[in-house]
Design a protein around this nucleic acid. Structure first.
Lengths: 204, 204, 204, 204
DNA sequence: AATGAATGAGCGTTCATTCAT
DNA sequence: AATGAATGAACGCTCATTCAT
């Protein structure tokens, strides 16, 4: 009659609490005590489930990646044409729709800053960025093909888009006067439209 | 008889040491002891010249701003046509030329992350971002006018560019595989060229 | 399974250690390390139980107040006539009986000095002084009524008595040659007797 | 042609600055830098004229003693009858007249607190308290003799008065609600009057 | 699985004192 | 006599981590 392990539930709770703390005060200032309190747990239990604070962050990064993936799948099943499909993804990345995920993207840039400092964090962070890049690239190339445009240079363009998304979130927090609400999406979408427009057509 | 004040020299030394520490370990992990050691000073002296660690950061931000300005003036005097002038500025922002300023831009994103957390830092950071935006906008509009294109939407476009620049630096540190050397400049310049190309012409 | 909380025990231990340190070296020179050592604890634990050094002082003030109250209750139950009741209270305030409470009164003046400098400490200190004043006043007026004397001016007189008590303790530490042992009680009691003697009688 | 030494002027300046700082923040929080600034001097010069911070305090105590003495002499030459003479002295101790000396008495209790902690300071402080006691006693006994009252117990009574004066100043700072303006003088004077009234007459 | 007390290294900061000029 | 930079020890406090229960 051994109790069912609640390991996964607890790890999720803790990662969620770290996410919320990062949004509020950043990773460095997110203390174990605060994370525990927010998760409704005790400090000692945190280290029972995670060997270190950094381990929670890495779990969180992977958790965010899985969220991204399921969102991508949801989008894929819903949208029909290539353009609106891509638009949905960019919109999702930027959390245009005001939902709980707005926190996620807001925290993302704080995680990026931490990844810039710690090698192990960077490894996991980079994996997610690469996945994002792949997703965006596939949708963009689908659009280009549909419009009978060349996909030449689309990989590099997409990398820049990902950088821009992160930049928008960084500046939204550090220079809010420059990035007004709704701006990011418009800018990105127009940049994409211009890219598509400027791509040479392919011969049929 | 009285000692000559070396205040400014020391403050510069200390700000430079903080800059170097930020590049290496970020702002939070840049301890006063490490800053002092790097500057060849004793920890106590740091607080003789600065009232707090944050005060050093703010001095550093202003110092970087003045560097930006002098670089802008240098560019203005050198370049002749609007296009190469703008190109030089973007290139300068991205420290394409391999000089000591590469550290500056590399640190910039870490400072942005700190600005995202502390109000007083944000104030000073934002001022510099606004100044960057102004500079870039002036040069872009000069180019547009020269090419007889409309300047409609140039302000918003420039804000996005600044965000992209910051995003490139963030990802260059947190996802280096995505942002290979030289990529950032190319991407930004192409994005600018596409913007110019897509702008409507103005009637003469 | 869960650990039993020893919070109250620890807080008491720490407050007691602060009390002892204040007696020895005063509040300013009572370092967290010294408090911890005296309590047989580690420095870090002090701040686990108290958010700041000042918080320990405030807890100590409240603890001393509760001690005063219980002593007052004990006296009330023991003494019968008004005069000996009052005498007991004054005697208690001055710790005439050589017990552990001698430390309490000796520390009291150091706490007063700190209260003179920090607003939050003053608030709590003042509350205790007001309570002392009330207690003394009630007993004095009971005595006056018993002797069929007017209670006119008794409130002001009692305030002066409280000031005198504090003054005696201050001088007992800073000018011990002036305040010899046992002096304080005699002086205060005679001053009270003279006050009672000089009060006008009331008509029956 | 050696310059006249300004030693005494500087020492006085510094002691005055310490006095002012004590009034504002107490002795412990009176930093050398703040003392220097208030005196219009530089930090290094403080230790040129005094070997330590404590040495300034001791000089200040002696300086205050000399002030007391000159005030006593002034009073002695002005007042005629014993009662008003005594009243003047008590009034002077309490700085009833709103002059610069109000600062002196306000600082006195802070100095007493410091004397309670440091042996060397206590020595000098005690000397002044003893002098005060002598002055007060002489005037009180002159009054008693004039009124043909016994001087029995006057020495002890005066010690208590000095303690009360200090207590009033302590509480005026740490429990201002208990000691309202003007209260101290009235209380002390009434206590003195009652003492005189209760003293037995002497046979002529 | 869970608790929360306990640890201890390290942080930013203060400041009396010293010293080269 | 005077300057003000420099020193270094000590402080209050933080917090990831450990551990007895």
């Amino acid at each position: 009659m051994a109790r069912r392990s609640n390991r996964d539930i607890r790890r999720r709770q803790i990662a969620d609490a770290l996410l919320a703390e990062i949004v509020d005060v950043g990773y460095d200032r997110a203390t174990i005590a605060a994370i525990a309190k927010r998760a409704g747990l005790t400090p000692g239990l945190i280290h029972y489930h995670f060997k270190s604070k950094q381990a929670i962050l890495i779990e969180l990064i992977q958790y965010l990646q899985s969220k991204l993936e399921s969102r991508y799948k949801l989008l894929s099943s819903r949208d029909t044409d290539a353009r609106s499909h891509l638009k949905s993804l960019v919109s999702a990345y930027l959390a245009v729709e005001p939902d709980a995920d707005a926190l996620v993207v807001s925290a993302w840039v704080m995680i990026a800053a931490e990844a810039a400092k710690k090698d192990e964090v960077r490894e996991h962070f980079e994996t997610v960025v690469q996945a994002q890049t792949q997703q965006l690239r596939q949708l963009l190339e689908r659009l280009l093909k549909h419009e009978r445009k060349s996909t030449l240079g689309s990989a590099a363009f997409v990398s820049g888009l990902i950088a821009s998304i992160n930049g928008c979130y960084l500046l939204a927090r550090s220079s809010p006067s420059v990035i007004v609400k709704g701006f990011s999406f418009d800018w990105l979408w127009q940049t994409i439209e211009r890219f598509v427009a400027c791509q040479p057509e392919v011969a049929s």
